[in-house]
């Protein structure tokens, strides 16, 4: 017993290192998006034509863009609009995918077949192309973006959850619960959700990363968050459009934050996965 405890403590930093780093990085990204805008109250839309395209200085810690706007203020407000769209979109995709998967996995065979064929169609469509198609059709309000991004990335999770539910539903503990009167919703929420918790949580983190990336890609193409709002993707695009003048202060910060957000999501997911593999 003693030995068990010491070896567990001994392994702890290694096992939880990735998770801690991922959560720390996620905290940093969230801080930039939701708290920092209030701590740095400069107006992101105020134009200072005399100061256009200046490198970082005491007055503008991250310099200014070609219109003379404060780049740090833009970065922070862009972070807010990025996360305010990407996070709800990821949550929507997660809930849709999980509910769809459970419905197919626990429902009657005909429902499973119907839902799975529909899913095949959804998976066969290239996500970004569909996204661009619809983004070009509807006005880019934040709500529309959330719906679009949310409804594009659920099929992968739906398939995983469905397969897991199918594999588990014949197991004895599920049969025992059914014998005691459990409904399908009860089986999904109480029994299966715990069994598939690693799959769910890890996918939730990956979906968050995906949503941020897709939104950045859309914004980069001008189909994301609309002016005067900025997002990390659109900031990166406007920085790159001036690449000839090498305004690194406009390119690096949004690029690094997109990268940090993706890394945070991936590391948190990976960390959770490893820490779950430890306890059986």
């Amino acid at each position: 017993m003693r030995q068990g405890v010491t070896s567990w403590l001994g392994r702890r930093p290694g096992r939880h290192g990735t998770l801690a780093a991922g959560l720390g990085l996620a905290g940093l990204v969230l801080f930039c998006g939701f708290i920092a805008p209030f701590l740095y109250p400069a107006d992101p839309y105020a134009i200072h034509p005399a100061q256009a395209l200046r490198p970082p200085s005491r007055l503008f810690p991250l310099g200014t863009d070609e219109l003379g706007r404060d780049a740090l203020a833009l970065l922070l407000s862009g972070g807010f609009s990025t996360l305010a769209v990407a996070l709800p979109a990821a949550a929507l995709a997660f809930l849709t995918g999980a509910a769809y998967g459970f419905a197919a996995g626990l429902g009657p065979l005909w429902l499973d077949k119907a839902l799975m064929r529909l899913l095949d169609v959804a998976l066969a469509l290239p996500g970004l192309i569909v996204l661009l198609f619809f983004a070009a059709l509807v006005p880019q309000t934040n709500l529309n973006l959330i719906l679009l991004l949310g409804l594009i990335s659920w099929p992968g999770l739906a398939r995983l959850v469905r397969n897991e539910a199918r594999a588990q539903r014949g197991r004895d503990f599920i049969l025992a619960a059914e014998q005691a009167g459990a409904s399908r919703a009860y089986l999904a929420l109480v029994h299966l959700s715990r069994i598939v918790a690693p799959v769910l949580v890890v996918n939730a983190t990956f979906m968050t990363g995906d949503a941020i990336l897709s939104l950045s890609a859309l914004s980069f193409l001008g189909l994301g968050v609309q002016p005067p709002q900025e997002s990390w993707g659109s900031l990166l695009e406007s920085g790159l459009s001036l690449a000839a003048l090498n305004p690194w202060w406009l390119i690096l910060p949004p690029g690094l934050l997109i990268f940090a957000a993706l890394l945070a999501a991936a590391m948190t997911g990976q960390g959770l996965l490893t820490s779950w593999q430890g306890d059986a």
């Binding site: 197991r171 004895d172 503990f173 049969l175 025992a176 014998q179 029994h191 715990r194 069994i195 918790a197 059986a280």
Partner: peptide
Amino acid sequence: PVFQDPRESLNPR
């Protein structure tokens, strides 16, 4: 019911 494999019949989580 009481099943054959007790591990299989209890939800591990």
